[in-house]
Simulated assay, not measured.
Amino acid sequence: MLVLSRKMLVEEKTKQLLNGYSAFAENEDLIRLLKRNISRHELDVFLDHTELGCWFIPNS
């Protein structure tokens, strides 16, 4: 079984956002880290909180 670190997941999802694609995070810790990374990169992102997690959708 392959285990991914949270840091790798956050970096991969940040790359998706930088390339204009949406990203989904289901873990509260991952959501928190992704929000921090988004603010560091000063990205304009819409957050859609659902029962299952959070969608990060880049604003064009």
Rank of each mutant, 00 (worst) to 15 (best):
S60H: 13
T14C: 06
L18W: 03
E51P: 07
M1G: 14
H49F: 06
K15T: 10
N59A: 14
V45L: 04
I31L: 03
P58W: 03
N27R: 10
S39P: 06
L4K: 12
K35R: 08
R40W: 10
V10Y: 01
H41N: 08
M1H: 12
L43A: 03
L18C: 07
I57C: 01
G53Y: 02
T50F: 09
E28G: 08
G20V: 00
N19K: 12
L43K: 00
L47D: 03
F56P: 02
N27L: 07
D44W: 00
Y21W: 13
S5I: 02
L47M: 07
D48N: 13
P58Q: 10
A25F: 02
L34M: 01
C54V: 09
S39T: 11
L17C: 01
R32C: 03
K7T: 13
L18R: 08
K15G: 10
S39K: 11
K13L: 06
W55T: 02
I31H: 04
F24H: 03
N19W: 09
V45C: 06
R40A: 13
L52G: 14
E11S: 04
V10W: 01
I57M: 03
H49E: 04
N59L: 12
N59C: 14
P58S: 10
L52K: 15
L47Q: 04
W55E: 05
L52M: 15
E12R: 11
S60Y: 10
A23H: 00
M1L: 13
N59M: 13
L34I: 00
H41P: 03
L34W: 00
V3G: 15
V45H: 02
P58Y: 05
E26I: 05
L33I: 09
C54R: 06
T50M: 10
F46E: 10
E42W: 07
S60C: 09
K35T: 01
L52F: 12
V10Q: 02
E51F: 09
W55C: 01
L30S: 10
E12Y: 08
E26V: 11
A25M: 05
Q16F: 01
H49Y: 06
G53C: 03
N19C: 10
D44F: 00
P58G: 03
D29M: 09
T50Q: 08
E11F: 01
W55R: 05
S22H: 09
L2H: 14
A25Q: 08
N37Q: 15
K35E: 04
T50S: 07
T14G: 04
Q16W: 00
K15E: 13
R6G: 08
L52T: 15
K13N: 08
V3W: 13
H41M: 06
A25W: 06
G53Q: 03
L34H: 01
C54H: 07
L33C: 14
S22V: 06
K13T: 04
L30C: 06
H49K: 08
E42S: 13
T50G: 08
K35L: 03
V45P: 01
N59G: 11
R40C: 09
S60D: 10
N19F: 07
L34N: 01
A23Q: 02
L52W: 15
L52Y: 15
D29P: 02
S5C: 09
E11P: 00
F46W: 12
